[in-house]
């Protein structure tokens, strides 16, 4: 295996581990922001000094600098997809909880027989009649 193969394989595993870890802690959220800033910084450096990218590429055993950039982009895409997928699932579960709470609250409003009937009013049809 060339150096780049080792690095990329390790990166894929790392990305999956990181994405699956707790996503709520302050530390993780802070780390994400710092990583984003670092990425922006590296991008600017790479734009200003393309030869630097080529040097790094040669060092890890990739022919062209643009190939290295492509590999890095794929890794980033993998991470963002996974992160969004998991985040979407969280929101999905929250929507379900909210829907349930709303439905149950509404059902309670609809059936005054479960609570005391309002003064001077005939109780409405509770929806729980006998036979």
């Amino acid at each position: 295996m060339t150096l780049v193969q080792v690095l990329l394989t390790a990166a894929v595993v790392l990305i999956i581990v990181i994405a699956l870890r707790s996503r709520r802690s302050y530390r993780t959220r802070a780390a994400k922001k710092l990583a984003f800033l670092l990425l922006a910084l590296v991008s600017i450096v790479a734009i200003l000094f393309p030869s630097l990218v080529q040097t790094v590429a040669s060092f890890v055993g990739v022919g062209r600098g643009s190939d290295l950039v492509l590999y890095a982009s794929v890794l980033l895409l993998l991470y963002t997809s996974l992160d969004f997928y998991l985040r979407f699932q969280d929101i999905d579960a929250q929507v379900t909880s909210l829907t349930r709470a709303l439905a149950l609250a509404q059902a309670e409003d609809d059936s005054p027989s479960l609570g005391p009937a309002p003064e001077g009013l005939e109780p409405r049809d509770s929806g729980t009649p006998g036979r």
Binding site: T96, T99, R100, L102, A103, L104, Q106, A107, G127, P129
Partner: peptide
């Protein structure tokens, strides 16, 4: 003659069962 509990959004059979 059923009591009706209505999900405002479609959430799937598992969600409905649990409700």
């Amino acid at each position: 003659g059923a009591v009706v509990v209505r999900h405002p959004l479609n959430r799937g059979q598992g969600a409905a069962l649990q409700t």
